[in-house]
Amino acid sequence: MTPQASSVLLEAQGLCAWYGAAQALFDLHLQVGRGEAVALMGRNGAGKSTTLKALMGLLPRRAGRVCFLGRDCSQEAPFQRARAGLGYVPEERRIFTDLTVDENLEVGRQAPRHWPDGRPAPVWTPERLWTLFPHLEPMRSRPGGRMSGGEQQMLTLARTLMGQPLLVLLDEPSEGVAPVIVDQMAEMLRALKAEGVSVLLSEQNLGFAAEVCDRAYLLDEGRVRFEGTMAALLGEPALRRAHMGI
């Protein structure tokens, strides 16, 4: 079930994107509602990360319409979308390796926000983040370059939350990290949903996505092959085999 129009935070209409002369996304339509976690599923190269980059305005050549909080932001720069409350967690993490955990979090800090109806949005502080990421607090003085891959993944998520996002674009968070970290990230995503924060999750790990996501879009070769509830996707083994190989 798609979200009601009044609750839609992010919407893409006819989204296309290119890398040089090669088209990577074809006429993609999607919606993410308030407090909803939505999965972008598919194989490597299906267009999942490209979709997130296009939504964030990170690809130089793209077409179609992107609306955030009911406003067309298609021509806005990435920093303008971030200032409006659109958070982005890249697959590469991109933490500042010479800065400590505390310093990385401070770099991401933005002022508290309000929802479109005027109500205050959740406010994320380092102290509050320690409850979501308890492994980070003992590392507050540790440089990012001296952390494991899973610890860096938690840090980049926490840094994004310091930007007080209303919606988070999250790229392949479970890739290459230990199962205990994956479990902690699932807890964190459920906590965000409970606060009304939305997540658009690019993911290949069907089990992880099924734990936290309400709906799913299945991509293959830059096109949407399925849109529906996560339960419906789980009930389509032939479709998953054809477009995900599982």
Results as ranks from 00 to 15, higher is better:
Met41Pro: 00
Gly42Cys: 03
Gly45Glu: 02
Ala46Leu: 02
Gly47Ser: 04
Lys48Gln: 04
Ser49Trp: 03
Leu52His: 10
Leu52Asp: 01
Leu52Asn: 03
Lys53Gln: 14
Ala54Lys: 05
Ala54Gln: 03
Leu55Val: 09
Leu55His: 07
Leu58Val: 14
Leu58Gln: 13
Ala63Asn: 09
Ala63Cys: 06
Arg65Tyr: 03
Cys67Ile: 00
Phe68Met: 03
Leu69Ser: 01
Leu69Met: 14
Gly70Asn: 06
Arg81Leu: 10
Ala82Glu: 01
Arg83Ser: 12
Leu86Tyr: 07
Gly87Ile: 05
Tyr88Asp: 00
Tyr88Phe: 15
Val89Asp: 04
Val89Gln: 09
Val89Glu: 04
Arg93Ser: 08
Arg93Asp: 03
Phe96Cys: 03
Val101Tyr: 07
Asp102Phe: 06
Asp102Gln: 12
Asp102Thr: 10
Leu105Cys: 12
Gly118Ser: 11
Gly118Cys: 10
Ala121Val: 08
Glu127Arg: 14
Glu127Ala: 15
Glu127Ser: 13
Arg128Lys: 14
Trp130Ser: 07
Thr131Cys: 11
Leu132Trp: 13
Leu136Asn: 02
Glu137Asp: 03
Glu137Asn: 01
Met139Leu: 15
Arg140Cys: 07
Ser141Ala: 14
Ser141Gly: 12
Pro143Ala: 12
Pro143Val: 12
Pro143Gly: 12
Met147His: 07
Met147Arg: 09
Gln152Thr: 10
Gln153Gly: 04
Gln153Pro: 01
Gln153Ser: 07
Met154Phe: 05
Thr156Arg: 00
Leu157Ser: 00
Leu157Ile: 15
Ala158Cys: 09
Ala158Val: 08
Ala158Lys: 05
Arg159Val: 02
Thr160Ala: 15
Met162Leu: 08
Met162Pro: 03
Gln164Cys: 07
Gln164Gly: 05
Pro165Leu: 04
Pro165Thr: 07
Val168Ala: 08
Leu169Phe: 11
Pro173Met: 01
Pro173Asp: 00
Glu175Ser: 14
Glu175Gln: 14
Ala178Cys: 02
Ala178Met: 15
